[in-house]
Design a protein around this nucleic acid. Structure first.
Lengths: 226, 226
DNA sequence: CTTTGTGAATTGGTTCACAGCT
DNA sequence: AGCTGTGAACCAATTCACAAAG
């Protein structure tokens, strides 16, 4: 089959598998640590071992970043990091608002990994009047009424929804109306969003159930094979 | 088509796709709500719409539970719930310990969804001497030294690891040594575990990066097609 | 007529295996 | 020698499409 004109790999955007993007963040984390430890070169085998995946998989993934690999050598750590950050879109600052000031929100706000990766929280909202006005991790808790103004003023593009399930869809609708571009949802329901708003959902109860299930049907006898 | 001997669906364990299990928890959540609202019958189309997936997918998934569907009718909500809970292994109580008493742990402890699904937290551990002895959500914070005893005494099978990355592998090793069967890991690293211990990992920073990436390459123009 | 259950087709993702570069 | 990049093979998951059941 000739492939001259069928699928031209346009230099800007190759097709990249949903799953490989999941791994990009993980590569990045390991690379940043190794870079920090002074390691200047890294191989697909090393990365594969760290993430417990096949080395060919790693090369396939990294090939999406361009031909950064040096045959016989490996990849230059710094170069990979730069390319990954660029590809993931984290080579710039992302502003995010957080709706729902519970323990989960506090955990997120306090986690310094975010600022290291270029995320900053620029607004904190809760409909509980007892919380409004409080300072939490350096931010004042505001009424959700202020959402449109704050989002417009800060140009926040991302939002974290950490409210009870009953309120989550209404909150999401307000966020969409205010022009937010992506939502990280922790509320245990399936949010309905217009397709131009991106969604990542994390349901902690589902994860724990998942684990229970794995244990439930786990090979209880550790096979005596190396 | 005879199916007598080729792939005998042994009543105990059919092969079930990893991905479909991910969805079982989600089906269960919707079904429980609908059941609560008095809906006695549900169709694959309804479930598919709720989770934004194909209806054939739903039927394939549910077929793993046995032939519960009534052609021309749908599924009986109660029956589905019972079967799902049984299959997921959540038709019993699971005991879990939590290591690392930060905001994330508090969020988990406070979330009532867990107890509703049959999860109970029976031990809370932190190596910070300032936290040891404190009461948190009705549990006393203990030193990690007490892990083996508590796990033996409570027969806890699951553990939630919510400690900083530097400590996580050591904590995991201690949990494995104490006989834990599954770990839900929130620390941002890839834990190395013996294969008889199950693992579910949730990395919040990765999820936020994922979202940034989606927005980064999102079709910024909402296509004017219905 | 509605909805299930499921082979067949399709799509997507992973692993293999090796040519080619250093 | 060692390691990358990638077509081909393989495996897994999703969707199609339709026969069978109520």
């Amino acid at each position: 089959m000739n492939k001259n004109d069928e699928v031209v790999p346009s230099p800007g955007e190759q097709r990249l598998s949903r799953a490989s993007v999941q791994r990009f963040s993980l590569y990045l984390r390991h690379l940043e640590r190794w870079n920090h430890e002074g390691q200047q070169i890294v191989s697909s085998g090393q990365l594969g071992e760290a993430l417990a995946i096949n080395d060919a998989q790693v090369r396939k993934d990294l090939a999406y970043l361009g031909n950064l690999g040096q045959p016989g050598i490996g990849y230059y750590t710094r170069e990979l990091i730069t390319a990954l950050r660029h590809r993931l879109g984290v080579d710039r600052v992302w502003s995010a608002v957080v709706i729902g000031v519970g323990n989960l929100a506090r955990a997120l706000l306090r986690y310094r990994g975010f600022s290291q990766q270029g995320f900053q929280f620029v607004g904190l909202f809760d409909s509980d009047v007892k919380k409004i006005g409080q300072m939490v991790e350096g931010l004042e808790v505001l009424s959700p009424d202020a959402l449109p103004k704050v989002i417009a003023a800060t140009k926040a593009e991302l939002a974290v929804v950490a409210v009870p399930a009953e309120m989550a869809q209404a909150v999401a609708d307000a966020l969409v109306a205010a022009g937010i571009k992506g939502i990280l949802n922790f509320a245990p329901l399936t949010l309905k969003l217009p397709q131009h708003v991106s969604l990542v959902a994390v349901d902690l109860a589902v994860q724990l159930e998942q684990l229970a299930f794995l244990v439930h049907l786990s090979p209880s006898a550790p096979e005596p094979e190396a």
